[in-house]
Design a protein around this nucleic acid. Sequence first.
DNA 1: TCGCCTGATAGTTGCC
DNA 2: GGCAACTATCAGGCGA
Lengths: 83, 83, 83, 83
Amino acid sequence: MADITIAKDQLRSIVERIEKLEEEKRTIADDIKDVYGEAKANGFDTKVLRQVVRIRRQDKAEVAEQDAIRDLYLNALGMLSGR
Amino acid sequence: MADITIAKDQLRSIVERIEKLEEEKRTIADDIKDVYGEAKANGFDTKVLRQVVRIRRQDKAEVAEQDAIRDLYLNALGMLSGR
Amino acid sequence: MADITIAKDQLRSIVERIEKLEEEKRTIADDIKDVYGEAKANGFDTKVLRQVVRIRRQDKAEVAEQDAIRDLYLNALGMLSGR
Amino acid sequence: MADITIAKDQLRSIVERIEKLEEEKRTIADDIKDVYGEAKANGFDTKVLRQVVRIRRQDKAEVAEQDAIRDLYLNALGMLSGR
DNA sequence: TCGCCTGATAGTTGCC
DNA sequence: GGCAACTATCAGGCGA
């Protein structure tokens, strides 16, 4: 019975932590939505805005991916161990 | 020209705020993942854990209604007796 | 040089076969979407429909086991009586 | 009762069509896996191969996205109606 | 071979 | 009410 109680408390703790974090995440998502709304109120085209944000994100990701590809190639050539 | 400059600053501000918020959101998502990982390490079934979190999140009335419809469908398919 | 040429042709063949298969896969995914759309037009609740399909897909024993674990968790959280 | 029978048949038809399509999709996914396996057996680095396939896919998507952005900009400038 | 982790896919939500 | 963006879940591939 004791171990069940412990598991019970643990479970409750886990679930509550997750729910708290999800709540925070939702809040931030709402904040993002608000910023887009504010931008729209200031005459910006949110569709374009989203494209801009996405492109900036992709650019960063692309750099990271190119690095990964370069490592793959170097590794395939047996040249990566020295890095 | 002045208004273009203003718009430019505004745009920059908007994009930066969005990116900052998205970064925070990502961090929290990682935290959630960590909690699940910790739960798993403590012997919990994370798949079921996710189901539980989802059940708690859902509106109770809605769940009941969906259950009713689902039973209707399953029954029509002759699959309800076995459950 | 010859083997490089061969590898090149092989590589091209491989990539093209994969892309062709991925294209087919995408087509079928679209077909599935169409069926759901048609079902919706005929008054079916697609959300529940997806649940039904999922239920049929899952291994029955596995479902039973997950149900048992989930009940255990919900019970530990004091949430089972209300269901 | 009659309409229930009709709905029942419709439901069964819908579910069976979806399940058939999902089965086909799974088969194709397996085929793709086979191609990668064959490539591996022929000495290709599947990790690099996947990168190649992904990059080709992204390149196409990127072209499509750039077209979309161009349209957005042209539209913002009131220049799209003539297209 | 097992567990982790990323990437693909399915599902949901919010906007137009 | 349909479409597009975003989120969550799942499965496959990789490394230990």
